[in-house]
Nucleic acid binder design. Structure first.
Length: 911
DNA sequence: AGCACA
C-alpha cells in the first residue's frame, strides 16, 4: 500500500526516528511532544532489528491523530525529521477497548498471511492467462483505480464497469451489453467518467455478459474491467435487523451495505467546493474515504510541499487551483504534469511565482487535455514561456494579464500553436501590439472573448479582430491608441458581438463608437465608463441594438440630451450604471426609468444632483428592481427611503452608504424580504430601532455594512445576529458603543466569513474568543485599533479559526506570544501588523517563519533593519511579498471623522 | 527503509 492510500487511523506511525535514543526516553519524549494534539492511549516503540527507528502513537480521537499527522510532519526530533503516516491497522489497546481484540498466535498468524498472499497471486496469474484481454498484451495497460475489494465481490445481477474511455456514452454501452440476454439498463455517473453500472435480470445472465465482454476495448488503450457490483441491500426486515446490530456493534461498518453506486450519487450531491462536507464524508469510513478520493475533481491545495502525496490521493483531479500557493517552482510543475497527465484540464497559476518556461513546457507537453490556463501576473514570464504555451494544442481559455515581458513574438507562437482558443486575456501585456493581436485574430478563429485592455494597439488590429465570426466579448478598456479617426476606417463590426467594453478610451466618442458597432446586431452590453461626454449622438449608435440589456457609463459626463436619447430607445434595458456621473438630474433620470420599466439593476452612486423626485420615479416605474446602489446621493432626503420598501419588493441589494436614511426608512426597506446586501455605512440617522426591523424581517441577509454608523449599539447588532443566520459579512468599524455583547451575539452566525471591527475600543479578547469559537468559517478579520484585544484573543483564534486568510491587527495589544500563536493557522495569507507595542523583532521573525503560506505582509519600516537579511530573503523565496509602511503612530483614531469624505480607510489600507 | 502491541 502506498503511503497516500493509507486511510486515517487514530494511531500514527512514525519513522526515521533517531535510533540512538533509548526506548524509554524515546517513548517519554514522543508522549510529551504529541500530547498537545489530544489524549494519548499508548506509545509503542521497539528496538528489534526490524522495528528500531519507528514508533506508534495511539490517540483517543482520530482528529487528534490527523492534526498530529499534518502538523508534525517532518518535525525535527532528536536531529532527524519525523516521517509520519497513519498506522496500517488498529492498535491492540483500541481493539481491547471496543471488544474486537483477538489475541494473536504469533507464528501461525504470519503463516496464514503469507498463504493468503500466495493464493491471491495465483488467482491473478490464472486470470491473466485466461482473460480475453490478455491474448495480445496481457491485460489492461492502464491501471484502473477501482474498488480494491472488487475481485472478492459476490455474484450480482449488476455489473460494475471500469477503465472506460471518458468519451463513452450510455448509448454505446447499451449497444454492447444488450447483446446478452436479460439486459435491463446502463447507468452512468455524471461526475465520474470512466465507470458505469449495467443491470441484468439475474446473476447468471450478468455473469455471461461479464465473461464475454471482459477486457473489451472501446478504444485501443482502454480494455474495460468488469466486476460484480458490490451488493446493495433492500430494506427487508432481515436487513433492518442487520442494520441495527451493525450500529450497536462499533467494530463493523454500517455503511458497507451501501453500493459504490449509491455512495457516488451521494457525493454528486455535495457541493464541489464545500471542503468541510467532503472532509466529513471521507472520514465516515474507509470505503467513503477511498471513494471520495476517486471522485474529487477540483483541488485547491494550501501547500505545494505536500502536492505529490495529495495528487496521489486524488488521481482524477481535473481542475487544479494553485492560487493559495505563492511558490510554485518548475519541480512542482513537473510533479503535476507527471501525475495528472491525462486528467488535468484546468490550472490556475495566477498567484504563483518561481516557475519558468521549463516547468511550463513540461506541463503543456504532458498534459494534453489542458483546456484552461491562468498565468496572469506572470511578470517574470518571457516569450520562452509563450512558446511553451504554444505546445498546449487543445487550450481554449488562456489568461495572461500583466505578463509584461511577453511580446508580439510570443503571442505569435501562441496564435500558431493554440488554434482552439476561445478566450484570451492579454490585459496589461504592454509589449503586445497590433502585430500580436492581428496574428491571434488570423489564426485563432474560434475566439469568443478577447480582453485587450491597456494594450498599445490601434484600429489596425481591430480590422482582423472584428472578422472573428464567433467573437462575443471584446474588451478594449484603456486602449488609448484607438480614436475616432482610426475607427472611421473600419467597415463592419463583428455580427456576433454581445459585449463591448470601451472604458477609459478617452479618444473615442459616439462617432467612433458607431463605426465600431456598425452591424453588431447581437449587442447586449455596452460599457463606456470614464470615457468622453455622452451626448444625444449616443442614440445614433444605440437604436440599432434590439437586444441591448445593459449600459454602463460610470464616471462619464452625461448630458440631458444624452439621457433623453437613451430614454427614447425602443428596447427596454435591464441594467444601467451611472456611478459618479456628472450631469445626472431628476428630469433625465425620471424620463429614463419611465421608458425602462424592466430595469433590474441601477447604480446612481454619487449622482449628487438627484433628489426625492428621482427616487419617487425609480420606485414607481421599476418595480422589479433587484439592485439599487445610491451611495452618497446627498440631496436625497430621508423621506425618499420610505418609498423603496413597498414599491420594490424584489430588492436584493441596497447601497445607501452616506445617506440620510433613518429608522423609518429602514422599517420600510425591511419589507424587502429577499434583501441580501445592505450597506449603511456613515448613516448617522439610523439606530438600533431600525436595525431591529432588519433583524426581524430580512432573514436572507448576507452582508451588512455599518461602518461609522455611530448611533447603533449592541441591541441593534444583536437583533441582526438573531434574525439573520445567513450573515457572511459585517462591518461595524469605528463604533464606540459596540462591546463584546455584539460579538457574542454575532458568534451565533456560523456562516460569518468577514468581520471588520476596526476602531471599536469597546470590544476585547473576550468577544473575539466568542467569535473564534462560533464562526469557524471566518476568513477575513480586521481588528485594527481594538486596543483591548490582546494575546488572550489570539489564542482562541489560533485554535478555532483555521480558515483565517487575512488579518489586520495594527495598534492592538497583541505581543510576540499572540502573534506566534496566530502563526499556527495554516491558511493565513495576508497580514497587516503595524504599531504593535509589545512586538519584538525576534518574536516577529519566529511567528513569520511558522506561517508558511504567507503571500503578503504589511510591516512598519522600522522593523526592516532589525530583521536579518537572510530571514527576509528566506521569506521572499517562499513567496511572501513585504510591504513596508512608515506612517507614524497615530494616537487618536480620527475622532472627528475627518476621513469620512476623503475616501474610506477600508479601501486604502486593506488589500 | 522498516507497520506492533512480548
Amino acid at each position: 500500500m502506498l503511503t497516500a492510500d493509507i486511510p486515517p487511523n487514530q494511531t500514527i506511525y512514525i519513522k526515521n526516528l533517531n535510533e540512538k535514543i533509548k526506548k524509554e526516553e524515546l517513548k517519554r519524549s514522543l508522549y510529551a511532544l504529541f500530547s498537545q494534539y489530544g489524549r494519548i492511549l499508548d506509545v509503542v516503540a521497539l528496538k528489534t532489528p526490524k522495528l528500531r527507528g519507528q514508533a506508534w502513537v495511539v490517540f483517543t480521537e482520530l482528529t487528534a491523530a490527523s492534526n498530529a499527522f499534518r502538523q508534525m510532519q517532518n518535525f525535527p526530533f532528536y536531529d532527524k525529521p519525523m516521517r509520519i503516516q497513519y498506522a496500517k491497522s488498529k492498535s491492540d489497546c483500541i481493539a481491547k477497548d471496543d471488544g474486537s481484540y483477538v489475541p494473536r498466535e504469533k507464528k501461525k498468524k504470519q503463516e496464514e498471511k503469507a498463504e493468503k498472499k500466495r493464493r491471491a497471486e495465483e488467482a491473478q496469474q490464472y486470470a491473466m492467462a485466461n482473460g480475453p484481454g490478455s491474448q495480445s498484451n496481457g491485460g489492461p495497460k492502464v491501471p484502473f483505480h477501482g474498488n480494491p475489494n472488487a475481485q472478492e465481490a459476490a455474484p450480482n445481477s449488476i455489473l460494475f464497469i471500469q477503465n472506460l474511455p471518458h468519451e463513452t456514452t450510455s448509448v454505446m454501452l447499451q449497444l454492447l451489453f444488450e447483446q446478452y440476454p436479460g439486459f435491463r439498463e446502463v447507468r452512468m455517473v455524471d461526475a465520474k467518467p470512466g465507470i458505469a453500472f449495467v443491470e441484468y435480470e439475474d446473476e447468471d445472465q450478468s455473469s455471461t455478459a461479464m465473461q464475454h465482454l471482459q477486457g473489451f476495448k472501446i478504444t485501443p488503450q482502454y480494455p474495460m474491467a468488469i466486476t460484480f457490483a458490490k451488493k446493495g441491500a433492500p430494506m427487508n426486515s432481515q436487513n433492518k435487523k442487520k442494520m441495527q446490530s451493525l450500529f450497536s456493534d462499533s467494530s463493523s461498518n454500517p455503511f458497507d451495505i451501501l453500493t459504490e453506486e449509491i455512495v457516488l450519487k451521494i457525493l454528486d450531491h455535495l457541493e464541489n467546493d464545500d471542503a468541510s462536507a467532503r472532509k466529513s464524508f471521507s472520514l465516515t469510513c474507509k470505503t467513503f474515504y477511498f471513494i471520495e478520493s476517486r471522485h474529487r475533481k477540483i483541488l485547491r491545495p494550501l501547500r505545494t510541499e505536500l502536492l505529490p502525496r495529495v495528487l496521489h490521493r486524488y488521481p482524477f483531479v481535473s481542475h487544479l487551483d494553485l492560487s493559495l500557493c505563492p511558490r510554485v517552482d518548475d519541480n512542482t510543475l513537473n510533479v503535476i504534469s507527471s501525475t495528472l497527465k491525462a486528467t488535468l484540464s484546468s490550472i490556475n497559476l495566477s498567484r504563483s511565482r518561481f516557475f519558468t518556461n521549463v516547468g511550463l513546457s513540461s506541463l503543456f507537453v504532458n498534459c494534453s487535455s489542458l483546456v484552461e490556463v491562468d498565468l496572469s501576473n506572470g511578470t517574470q514570464l518571457t516569450d520562452l514561456a509563450a512558446s511553451a504555451i504554444a505546445e498546449a494544442k487543445n487550450l481554449e481559455r488562456l489568461r495572461l494579464a500583466r505578463c509584461k515581458l511577453i511580446t508580439d513574438m510570443g503571442i505569435g507562437c501562441i496564435a500558431v500553436g493554440c488554434r482552439n482558443l476561445r478566450l484570451l486575456c492579454l490585459k496589461w501585456c504592454l509589449r503586445v501590439g497590433d502585430l500580436g493581436v492581428e496574428l491571434i485574430a488570423l489564426k485563432c478563429k474560434e475566439i469568443r472573448s478577447l480582453d485587450l485592455s491597456y494594450l498599445p494597439i490601434t484600429e489596425k488590429c481591430l480590422k482582423s479582430v472584428l472578422q472573428l465570426q464567433y467573437l462575443e466579448d471584446l474588451i478594449l478598456e484603456g486602449c488609448h491608441g484607438i480614436d475616432d479617426d482610426g475607427l472611421s476606417t473600419l467597415e463592419q463590426s463583428s455580427k456576433s458581438l454581445k459585449m463591448l467594453n470601451l472604458s477609459n478610451c478617452q479618444n473615442v466618442t459616439c462617432v467612433g463608437l458607431s463605426s465600431l458597432t456598425n452591424g453588431a446586431e447581437q449587442l447586449e452590453q455596452l460599457i463606456l465608463a470614464y470615457g468622453s461626454v455622452v451626448t444625444a449622438d449616443i442614440a445614433k449608435c444605440l437604436h440599432n441594438f434590439s437586444k441591448l440589456q445593459s449600459i454602463k457609463l460610470d464616471g462619464c459626463l452625461v448630458t440631458l440630451s444624452g439621457i433623453k436619447a437613451m430614454a427614447s430607445l425602443n428596447t427596454s434595458v435591464k441594467e444601467l450604471s451611472f456611478s459618479k456621473c456628472l450631469g445626472v438630474t431628476d428630469e433625465g433620470l425620471s424620463l429614463l426609468v419611465q421608458s425602462h420599466k424592466q430595469l433590474k439593476k441601477l447604480d446612481i452612486t454619487c449622482c449628487r444632483k438627484i433628489t426625492y423626485t428621482s427616487i419617487d420615479s425609480i420606485t414607481n416605474s421599476c418595480t422589479s428592481l433587484t439592485s439599487l446602489r445610491m451611495e452618497s446621493c446627498s440631496l436625497v432626503p430621508k423621506e425618499a427611503f420610505v418609498l423603496i420598501g413597498p414599491r420594490c419588493p424584489y430588492l436584493e441589494d441596497l447601497d445607501a452608504t452616506d445617506n440620510e436614511i433613518d429608522d423609518k426608512g429602514l422599517k420600510s426597506i425591511s419589507r424587502c424580504s429577499k434583501l441580501s446586501i445592505l450597506k449603511l455605512g456613515i448613516c448617522s440617522n439610523i439606530s438600533d430601532e431600525g436595525l431591529a426591523y432588519v433583524g426581524s424581517c430580512c432573514s436572507m441577509l448576507k452582508e451588512l455594512d455599518l461602518y461609522r454608523s455611530m448611533a447603533i449599539s449592541d441591541a441593534g447588532i444583536t437583533a441582526v445576529a438573531d434574525g439573520c443566520p445567513a450573515l457572511e459579512m459585517i462591518n461595524i468599524a469605528y463604533n464606540d458603543k459596540v462591546t463584546d455583547k455584539s460579538l457574542t451575539s454575532l458568534s451565533k452566525c456560523s456562516m460569518l466569513k468577514e468581520l471588520e471591527i476596526r476602531g471599536c475600543p469597546g470590544v476585547s479578547s473576550i468577544g473575539l474568543s466568542a467569535i473564534a469559537m462560533g464562526c469557524k468559517q471566518l476568513t477575513v478579520l480586521d481588528i485594527k485599533k481594538c486596543f483591548n484585544i490582546d494575546d488572550n484573543g489570539m489564542l482562541p483564534l489560533a485554535q478555532f479559526s483555521r480558515n483565517l486568510k487575512q488579518i489586520n491587527l495594527s495598534y492592538c495589544s497583541v505581543t510576540d506570544i499572540g502573534l506566534v500563536a496566530l502563526a499556527s493557522i495554516n491558511s493565513l495569507q495576508n497580514m497587516t501588523i503595524l504599531h504593535l507595542a509589545g512586538l519584538t523583532p525576534n518574536g516577529l521573525a519566529a511567528a513569520l517563519l511558522a506561517c508558511r503560506g504567507l503571500m503578503k505582509l504589511k510591516l512598519h519600516a522600522s522593523f526592516k533593519p532589525l530583521l536579518p537579511r537572510s530571514f527576509l530573503e528566506y521569506m521572499e523565496a517562499h513567496g511572501c511579498v513585504f510591504h513596508w509602511r512608515d506612517k507614524a503612530f497615530q494616537k487618536e483614531m480620527d475622532p472627528k471623522g475627518w476621513n469620512l469624505h476623503l475616501g474610506r480607510s477600508t479601501s486604502t489600507e486593506l488589500p
